[in-house]
Each structure stands twice: as C-alpha cells, then as structure tokens.
Design a binder for these strands. Structure first.
Lengths: 267, 267
DNA sequence: TCCAAATCGAACAGATTTGTGCGATAATGT
DNA sequence: ACATTATCGCACAAATCTGTTCGATTTGGA
C-alpha cells in the first residue's frame, strides 16, 4: 500500500472517530506501529491532525483554552482602556451593533457596567456578548442575536446572519479586527466573518473599529473595511509613532486610549 | 482511551451536569481517581473548569447561572434516560432542529457523544446547545443558530427567529416543554417561545417532544402543540398509569424511557 | 470544638509509548 | 543490469502515562 493511501485512511478514520490509537491502526492497516507513527508525524506536520501520546486526535477535538475567559489576559489592560474610550461614544437609547472577538467582548463588558447602556438595543453576532447581556439581566437592555453558523471564535456568520442584519438598522457598529494593514484597511482571517462585518457596517450610520496596537504587525486574508469607510478607530498609545501618523492620515478619527499603569503584578 | 478523549468526556459531562465528582468519573470512565485528578488539573490550567474539593464545577458563563445548572441537576437521571431514547431516533446525515430548555440540552449532549451525530446538521434556538456543539466540535456537525432576542432561559425567539426558521427545512424537531395538559397539548410559559416552537414544527417532517413525568402536573400559558400534531412523545416510566393511558390515546407514539438505578453515589 | 471519613497530593513502580539507529526490502532512474 | 533512493520493520533506551500507597489536608456532623 502506498503511504499516501495509508495516510488518507488514517485521516478518514480520524474524522469518523475523533481520535485514533497507534496500536489499533497498526493492526487494522497491517503495518508496524513505527510506520503509523511516521505517517502521523507527517500528517501532523501538515497540520491535518494533532499528535498525542498513544495516537492522534483531530485538531478540532483538541480542547483549547476557552476563548473568552482567560485568553489574551496579556493585553487585557490595553483592551480595557480601549473599551472605556468606546463606551464614551454610546448614548442612552442608542441602537448599536457589536461584532465578534475578544476586544468587542471587553467593550460589551464595560458598556454594560456603565450608565451609557440604559435603554440601548444591541445587535450582535457574538455568542459570548449575547450571553453576557443575558447574564447581567438587570439592565433594560435588549439584545438581538443574528442567526447563522458558528465559527471557532463563537461568532455567527454566513448568509443567515447577513440577511438578518440587512433587515435592520443601527446607529453605530463596534467591530474588532484581526489585523490592520496600513495602506489597505482592516482584515479578518475568515472571509465569512469579514462578510458579516461588512453587513453590519452597511446598516450602521457610524462604524467604529476597536483594535490594540499589536494588530498593526499582523496580517490576514479578507479585507472587510477600507480606512475611508470607518469613522473612528480606537487603539492604544503604544502604537508606534510612524503607524500613528500614517493611520491618522487615512482615517477620519483616531482615538488613542491610555492604558493604566503597566501594573507589574507583584506581592 | 486517549487522554484528550477522556478530558473531552469530562468537559462534556461537566457541561451537561454543571458539576462532576472524581469518584463518579473514575467509575464511569474506568480509570483511577488519580488519573481523573490529573486530567482535571490540566483542564483547570486551561481554564476549562474550576477545581473543587471532590471534583470540578463549570466555569462557563452559560452554566454558572443557577437557572441552567440547578435545574438540569435535579432530574438528571430522568433526562438522561429520555435523551438516550431520543438519540435512537436520529440517523447520521439527518437535519434536525433542537429547541430550548434543559431537557433538549441534555438530549443534545447525549447526541453529540453518540455515533448518530456524524454528518448531521442542527438548527437550534438554544444558546447553550449552540455553544455545546461549538465546544465539542469533534464531529462533522454543522450548527445553524436562529437569530432573535434572548429569553431568560437562553433561547432565541421573536420574529427574527421565526423568519429564519421558516426559510429552512428539517427532518425532525426535538422540543422540550414546560407542561403537558392532557386534553389540550403542550405548553410554554412564554408565548414568544411557543411561537418559535411552532415555527420549528412547521418546517419539520416529524415532531418529537421530550418531557419528564413531572411536566404532567404543571400548567402554563401558551399552547404550542396539540397532541395530534406531535409524532412521538418521550417521557420516563414514572408517569402515573392514568396519565400514560390517556396520553397514549392522544398521541401517535409514546415512548417510556427507563431511568437507570437512582445511583445513590457510593462505593 | 472535636472526630471520623473522605479527599488530596507526592512519590514510587509498572506498563506503555516513543525516538533513533540500523539493516532489509522495494521502487526508481540511468 | 546496476546504483540510488525511499520505505519499512526491529531493537533498545528514554520519556510518558497510569495505578497504588501513604501521610497531610479538608469536609461535615456530633
């Protein structure tokens, strides 16, 4: 049997069962465990599966860290500062949209704790944001969730989401972004998510992008907004001066949030 | 069994029950308590659960709410048995809808752990169900979430939900119910939820109601289904004989699930 | 408050898995 | 036909995982 055939079978079994054991594969495929091990190593290099002790698991069965509780605690100070600036742009009674991602989630947290949120209506495609509002049921905040299929990052996207969004109108949309490309605009790694973000911008009078300075140094696949389509960009003051200057030229308004003390956590 | 699979099951059970004990997991999974302890420690490091004396509790926002965890704790044995019967009615490749409530959630839990769930598509208006599928994304299961506004019970309802649902078609819909009124049918306390349940039934070839025997003794406001509109009712065998007889006359099919031993947890 | 039972964590031992080196075999190119 | 390369299987040492024992700690009730 050709090795690629064998590897195909391994992946296929993995898809069906979620996990495979080297000893079992060795018996089923009639080759030695060493061969299976080498196959798995190769497949893991290609990112088709994840090696674990005793076999392999599909990358999706792998339990990763929860997206919204502990992730990116590093930059939590930055996100907090950015969120607080964003909260100032909301007025009681507004109808706003909130996109996916951790930055938007932190914004939602701060917004709900503030006074600005009284009487507002929130449209969101972020499950965590929706749950957040629901959990803090004290406020007179209405939440509308776009439907759609769920992405890894717990956002709802796809034609259903886009269609629901298109049937509504909001004052302001708050979006996070995966990366910022200085000449081009704002990008997401998932094109469906990008499409949904665009749909939200289409129904909003005002678009506000929330993004910390680290996003300037990364890049992604799908552009969802050019600079001229965005009304306000809120980031933190750690962004390098060169990028600040270039961005300020491109965008209508650039707000720099000032994070509190680095807070070297000690005893 | 591969350790990541085991950890997966732990998280899975945790989501269903809200809390798990080490002794119980040790028996259920057939490994020593020390192994479970090590798994839990690892999962706690990832932030997927919180360690407590004797076991672990969920940190997830969706289950830290007393509403969901306490309720699903109560009659967990009944719901498990009912869920297992319901899982048998699903075939790989099916397109099914799952409604809100804890019973439907437990069903989703069992379904995803079973083989039947391979290749299925799930339409749901339950945020917890959506998150569950997303979190356990081990199988090739697609989830479509109806949009809408969120109710106290974390279900999505309202015109948006109904409209999205109306644009789709499913083989089978699985619904919980708040109460069963023997001459009339199945009721929910919230009329919006009732409307959404009706919308789901409208697009389904087959309607299946999941409900434990306690629901016969309560009553609610809004009727969402008459007996003749329902194809199958699954309940547990603790329902009193009189109600069984009367219900059997009214419904096309009545399945009685037999809960396992009360399982007074001891050695 | 005190005590008994349960739970926890650390350390050790046994079992399983893994990586590397080496030789054998099969496939490929000249 | 010959040489070259790639693939496979085996053996042994290192690493990892798991179970058990045992004292320390926590829990819950008298």
């Amino acid at each position: 049997m050709i090795s690629s055939q064998r590897q195909h079978l391994i992946v296929s079994r993995l898809r069906a069962r979620g996990a495979v054991r080297i000893t079992a594969l060795s018996k089923e495929l009639g080759v030695s465990a060493m061969t299976i091990r080498r196959d798995i190593a190769e497949l893991a290099d290609k990112g088709l599966l994840k090696r674990v002790h005793g076999g392999a698991v599909s990358t999706s069965t792998l339990l990763s860290e929860p997206l919204f509780s502990v992730k990116s605690q590093m930059d939590i100070g930055l996100k907090d500062a950015i969120a607080q600036e964003a909260v100032k742009l909301v007025s009681p009674g507004d109808v706003i949209a909130i996109g996916g991602g951790t930055t938007a989630y932190v914004f939602a947290q701060h917004l709900l704790e503030s006074q600005q949120s009284s009487g507002i209506t929130i449209l969101t495609n972020s499950i965590p944001v929706a749950e957040l509002v629901q959990a803090l049921e004290s406020k007179d905040v209405e939440v509308i969730v776009t439907g759609g299929v769920i992405t890894r990052s717990n956002s709802l996207v796809g034609p259903i989401a886009d269609k629901v969004i298109a049937s509504l109108r909001v004052n302001t949309v708050f979006l996070g972004t995966h990366s910022v490309s200085v000449p081009r605009g704002f990008l997401m790694p998932n094109s469906l998510e990008a499409a949904t973000d665009m749909a939200m911008m289409d129904i909003a009078d005002r678009t506000i992008i929330l993004t910390d300075h680290t996003k300037w140094s990364s890049t992604s696949l799908s552009l969802f907004a050019k600079f001229e389509q965005v009304d306000t960009v809120i980031t933190d003051d750690e962004l390098d001066p060169d990028s600040i200057m270039k961005t300020r030229d491109l965008v209508k308004e650039l707000i720099l949030a000032h994070p509190a003390e680095p807070e070297k956590l000690e005893a």
